Amino acid sequence: MTSLSAPVPPVPAEVRPASVAWLRASVSRFSNGPDHARRRALAVSALAGVDVEALRHKAFEAARRAIGDGGDVMAVVARPVPVAVLAGELGLAVRPPDVVTVAAAYHPHVVPDAAAEAALGRLLAACGGIGEPAAARIGLLVQACDATAGLIGNALMVAFRGPGAAVAETLRSNPPVLRTRRRIGGSDVFVELAGTPFGAGPRECPGARHAIALATGVLQALDGFRLTDPEPAWVPSPNLRMPSALWVTRDRTGGRFC
């Protein structure tokens, strides 16, 4: 058994319905065996009808509107734009801030607060109510939130090579998701994702092409901007690598990213 094919640490199954703990117990991300296969299939099916080129184009248009003449890319573009665009293509009328709030409480080491629980309630209402299909849709949005934001933020640092090249280079040398948890020999361990930023095997990310399309569209919209702080602070996280804020302004000289 390879490290990435090892089971994930289990999460409690006896939890309050419609809670963040319930979401964890109902998505493929924290499941094993038949539960994982069944729940992953729901996510794959939801993504099957999504046109990745439409994602790229709509992410470009939405990012261009959101950034205006400049601002904090992470706050106004990198998180809300991919979430809103993906949700729209999935036919879901959700509020991106609700996804951002739930994403911050998604992992088992985080204790959800009242805001996260309330946000999940609104997401459930928009995604069909309690059940694995709704959990799969919310899981797609939540897992796309910080990971895609990190890809955008990290890629922006090397985007002078061109948006497409920046995404590819970031996935190779500075991926947003650094490691994941697995249970090996009865112990929960971190498994490095070096060389496999979207995972591998039965747990390979089903939305890899979608994430790349969203990130590329956003980076294309930011062409012609420059960083005002080339040394940003980074989010403190054991498994994510992403700037906490990334301020840009339109480059009136006509230059590219810097």
Score class of each variant (00 low, 15 high):
Cys205Asp: 14
Asn32Thr: 04
Gly128Ser: 02
Val100Gly: 00
Ala166Thr: 00
Asp223Cys: 13
Arg29Val: 08
Val50Cys: 03
Ala155Arg: 00
Ser187Ile: 11
Asp35Phe: 05
Val191Thr: 00
Arg79Gly: 02
Ala54Cys: 10
Ala75Gln: 14
Ala155Val: 07
Thr170Asn: 02
Thr249Gly: 12
Ala114Thr: 11
Val81Gln: 13
Thr249Glu: 15
Ala62Gln: 13
Gly128Leu: 05
Leu246Asp: 10
Asp69Ser: 15
Arg65Trp: 13
Arg172Val: 10
Ala41Thr: 07
Val191Glu: 00
Val248Cys: 15
Ala18Met: 11
Val20Arg: 01
Ser26Trp: 11
Gly121Cys: 11
Asn174Phe: 10
Val11Gln: 00
Ala155His: 00
Thr196Gln: 10
Val235Pro: 00
Val111Asp: 12
Asp69Thr: 12
Ala168Arg: 09
His107Arg: 04
Ala114Asp: 15
Ala78Cys: 14
Cys127Gln: 13
Ala48Phe: 13
Gly129Asn: 12
Leu55Ala: 10
Ala215Cys: 15
Gly88Leu: 11
Ser244Leu: 09
Ala166Trp: 00
Pro176Trp: 01
Met157Ser: 08
Val158Ile: 08
Pro232His: 04
Arg79Ile: 09
Arg203His: 09
Val52Phe: 13
Ala66Asp: 14
Val94Lys: 07
Val142Tyr: 04
Ala18Trp: 01
Met1Ala: 12
Thr2Arg: 14
Ile138Thr: 01
Ala221Ser: 11
Val235Leu: 08
Ile152Asp: 00
Thr180Tyr: 08
Gly150Pro: 09
Val83Ile: 15
Gly128Ala: 05
